[in-house]
């Protein structure tokens, strides 16, 4: 395998191969750095696989009897937020969760003081060197979902992986041009070491951060 790639490059071709080798290396680096920061990183394939992974996370929690606390209206069943674009066939995706008895919040996250069980969101960039994802939130519901969810699953297409922080300024400049913009570089789940310097996850924000590296 190694040898074949070498030959291809010598022939002056292999642009695709070089690109995919670069991606593979960024994926390796991202995985190791994000895991160091306490995130779970998986490669679930495409969007379908990513959503199936998220659904499994919620079902596994239910099976273990874990739910976000004190939900609005007293309904204890799981509550998730799905950040999907129109081309993602949002109706069908929501139905996938609803058919398992999981409620899907579409707006009004401000009412969810007790938190939600899972937020499934996209991101604008992944930074391999620091294991971070850049999350731009133009709506309040999306913003709150990333803060209030017990579990945050972030879909990161491999094509959005950058090596280091130098990829940030162009995105930040564009986003911060708008009034009311809110951009977060997120690395791992919420954490504190304030008591005896014991690292403890989930003090205010998500207890777990799952990064789903997808192929598209």
């Amino acid at each position: 395998m190694e040898e074949r790639r070498g030959v291809a490059e010598e022939r002056g071709g292999g642009v695709e191969e070089r690109r995919s080798e670069k991606t593979r290396e960024l994926v390796r680096l991202f995985k190791s750095r994000a895991r160091e920061a306490g995130a779970v990183v998986v490669e679930p394939g495409k969007l379908d696989g990513a959503l199936a992974y998220a659904l499994d996370l919620v079902l596994a929690r239910e099976a273990a009897g874990v739910f976000a606390e004190a939900k609005e209206g007293g309904d204890p069943s799981s509550l998730v937020f799905l950040d999907l674009k129109p081309e993602d066939e949002p109706e069908r995706r929501r139905e996938m969760f609803a058919s398992k008895g999981i409620r899907v919040a579409e707006e009004g996250l401000r009412k969810c003081a007790g938190g939600i069980d899972l937020a499934f969101t996209g991101c604008a960039l992944g930074i391999a060197e620091s294991g971070s994802v850049l999350i731009e939130t133009r709506t309040e519901d999306l913003r709150l979902a990333t803060m209030l969810a017990d579990l945050h699953a972030v879909r990161l297409p491999k094509s959005l992986l950058a090596r280091d922080l130098s990829a940030l300024p162009p995105r930040l400049r564009r986003e911060l041009f708008h009034s009311g913009s809110f951009v977060s570089l997120v690395t791992g789940p919420s954490r504190t070491a304030d008591v005896e310097r014991v690292l403890t996850l989930g003090v205010h924000g998500p207890l777990e951060l799952h990064v789903l590296l997808t192929e598209e």
Partner: peptide, 28 residues
């Protein structure tokens, strides 16, 4: 690159947030 490394020996802070201007009104 240096702040969290120097402060706590972490590679980077868990959350770095940039926000510009007043956030839009809550729909409620």
């Amino acid at each position: 690159e240096l702040l969290a490394r120097s402060a706590t020996g972490q590679r980077i802070n868990g959350y770095v947030t940039w926000t510009a201007g007043a956030l839009p009104a809550a729909p409620a």
